[in-house]
């Protein structure tokens, strides 16, 4: 059974079909990139996979459970328990330190553990920046804090929206290295991007156009 399965999923806003009968499967431990131009439906798919929106039609199975009809409270619990989110704009709480930002995710999930949060920061190479506020961190460092926060609760799926969109080349390389490491450790990664270089490092790339899957590319040169 696939970890994530979209069956004939559509999202309709008035006359606009942002997603049009999309079907997709993602296996546990897989690294999938979702590409497409603006307006292709990437963000809509991201929101539906991330349990932040519900489809108008079709079903979304996450770990075998259909989440397409769940209410807002249940979707919140699913996000908390099963999904790790990484944002293009990092979205760290600006008055909390790096380690506290990681602990916020723990706080909503279970019990905050500073030692564990520090270990997560160590995994992304930021142990020595744990007590710094976001304003004292570079963009790349903020994104790595965001990744540490996404990892801290051992989610079923790590969902990244343009994770390197605001980073320079050096930091993009660091983030992709972290993704490789996460993949080697068995994490399931779904990365929404418009950057072909970011998509190329994934196992498989789904290309969306006008709300439909235009093509699917398996990376023959994928290096685990």
């Amino acid at each position: 059974m696939s970890l994530l399965q979209l069956n004939q999923v559509s999202k309709i806003y008035g006359d606009l079909r942002a997603l049009d009968k999309v079907s997709l499967s993602v296996e546990k431990g897989e690294w999938v990139a979702i590409m497409g131009p603006s307006g292709s439906g990437k963000s809509t798919m991201m929101n539906i996979i991330g349990a932040m929106d519900k489809p108008s039609e079709g079903e979304v199975l996450l770990d075998g459970r259909d989440i397409s009809k769940e209410n807002a409270k249940t979707l919140t619990n699913i996000r908390r328990d099963k999904i790790g989110l990484i944002f293009q704009q990092f979205h760290l709480v600006n008055y909390l330190t790096a380690v506290e930002n990681v602990m916020v995710a723990q706080y909503y999930h279970s019990i905050p553990d500073e030692k564990e949060a520090l270990n997560a920061l160590e995994r992304v190479g930021l142990r020595d920046r744990a007590k710094h506020l976001p304003s004292q961190l570079s963009g790349g460092e903020q994104q790595r804090v965001c990744i540490a926060r996404a990892l801290i609760n051992y989610p079923e799926v790590i969902l990244a929206d343009e994770p390197t969109g605001n980073l320079d080349e050096a930091n993009e390389g660091i983030v992709l290295d972290i993704f490789r490491q996460l993949h080697r450790e068995g994490s399931t990664l779904i990365v929404v991007t418009h950057d072909p270089e970011v998509a190329e490092v994934a196992q498989r790339t789904i290309v969306l156009e006008h709300g439909r899957i235009a093509r699917e590319v398996v990376n023959e040169n994928f290096v685990p």
Binding site: K73, N77, H91, V93, N94, A105
Partner: peptide, 16 residues
């Protein structure tokens, strides 16, 4: 509001 949205995205309940 953005912070509230972020907390919700991380799994915070409205009550929390």
């Amino acid at each position: 509001r953005k912070e509230i949205g972020l907390r919700k995205a991380l799994g915070a309940s409205n009550q929390s």
